[in-house]
């Protein structure tokens, strides 16, 4: 034994039950009481900062490869998001759900305007009713005269044949609920007939449900593809850094230390893909808009496609970052155990 000094293990090394474990502070009497919170926090932040910078540096080293990976991910994100935005626009074009599902209550001919207004106020208080509007017999006749072009002929009639109407807008569009509401309204006094065009509602619901399902299916499919793309990309990065990972593990790097740069890399790929996807959608909708404006103008409408709302764009960006992170996590979790030092 040739040692001239045999210091305690704890004097020279700082193994800690947490990662990272910064150096212990030395005191005058050579005792230590572990790092304070500030030191631990700085060490943790420094570790994250260096992982983020390292990931950025590695992506920057292969700009074309990184760009194309982001582009593939952006296409996978843009398809369902673009379809979803188009569906929202179609819904806006076709009017709101509530308008399509209005219930018309035709009042008895002997019901006065005061009866109609009282009934409207009563209906407004019923659960499930969003809005109720009363159209008196005279208003109905006036509108009919204007719209039908039969003004003169109608004036010859001995009395107004049109009943008063209360137009009820439900809060929710759900077939059983609508039918139940219709039946309840039909039983009200002075109501002759409660009419709900359920066929139209059903058709619209079916079309939109189909659209929603298609978008959902496509989203699931493309999100899976996106996870595979990011997983495979991260797997290649892991393979390229196999020796580095083995060395890091041998010199005391924890799994979370090894995992961290890859997670940042996944999140950065996701961020890049999100930005690209947002740009592609904004450009695509703008490009389509000229044709849509031209077409709607032919029908006397001023309808135009809405762009990507900022909230949707931010959700897209956040979702892309999250997907990149999750994809990287799955890839690292799968491959990290295979990279035990040999």
């Amino acid at each position: 034994m040739s040692a001239t000094r045999s210091p305690k293990v704890s004097e020279r090394v700082a193994p800690k039950p947490a990662d990272p474990a910064p150096e212990k502070k030395k005191r005058g009497n050579d005792e230590d009481d572990g790092p304070d919170f500030g030191t631990l926090l700085r060490a943790w932040l420094e570790s994250h900062r260096s992982s983020l910078l390292d990931s950025l540096r590695r992506l920057g080293k292969q700009p074309i490869g990184s760009f194309f990976t982001c582009l593939v991910m952006a296409v996978a994100l843009s398809l369902p998001m673009g379809l979803s935005l188009l569906l929202s626009n179609v819904e806006r074009l076709g009017g709101s759900w509530q308008r399509a599902a209005q219930i018309s209550l035709y009042l008895k001919l002997d019901a006065s305007s005061r009866d109609g207004e009282a009934l409207r106020d009563q209906i407004k208080g019923i659960a499930g009713v969003a809005e109720a509007e009363f159209v008196s017999r005279d208003q109905a006749l006036n509108e009919f005269q204007k719209q039908s072009g039969l003004g003169e002929a109608l004036r010859e009639l001995p009395e107004n044949p049109l009943p008063g109407v209360i137009v009820v807008t439900p809060k929710e569009v759900d077939k059983p609920a609508l039918e139940a509401l219709r039946q309840r309204l039909a039983e009200l006094p002075r109501v002759e007939l409660a009419q709900l065009d359920l066929v139209w509602v059903e058709r619209l619901a079916a079309i939109l449900k189909l659209g929603d399902r298609f978008v959902f299916g496509l989203t699931v499919l493309l999100v899976s593809a996106l996870l595979l793309v990011i997983g495979n990309t991260i797997r290649l990065h892991i393979e390229n850094r196999r020796i580095e990972i083995e060395v890091i593990k041998l010199v005391g790097g924890t799994d979370s230390y090894v995992r961290r740069p890859f997670l940042y890399m996944g999140a950065l790929y996701g961020f890049g893909a999100g930005v690209l996807s947002w740009g592609v959608l904004a450009f695509g909708l703008n490009w389509l808009n000229d044709a849509v404006i031209g077409l709607s103008g032919l029908y006397g409408s001023d309808f135009a496609l809405a762009g990507v709302p900022p909230a949707d764009g931010l959700s897209l960006l956040l979702g892309a970052v999250l997907l990149g992170y999750i994809g990287a996590w799955i890839a690292v979790a799968r491959h990290l155990s295979e990279l035990a030092p040999r």
């Binding site: 474990a21 020796i243 041998l250």
Partner: peptide, 17 residues
């Protein structure tokens, strides 16, 4: 990992990056 932080290791093939 915390155990390995108490150990230094030298390899025949250096294992440098």
């Amino acid at each position: 990992p915390f155990l390995r932080r108490q150990i230094g290791v030298v390899f025949q093939n250096h294992q440098l990056l």
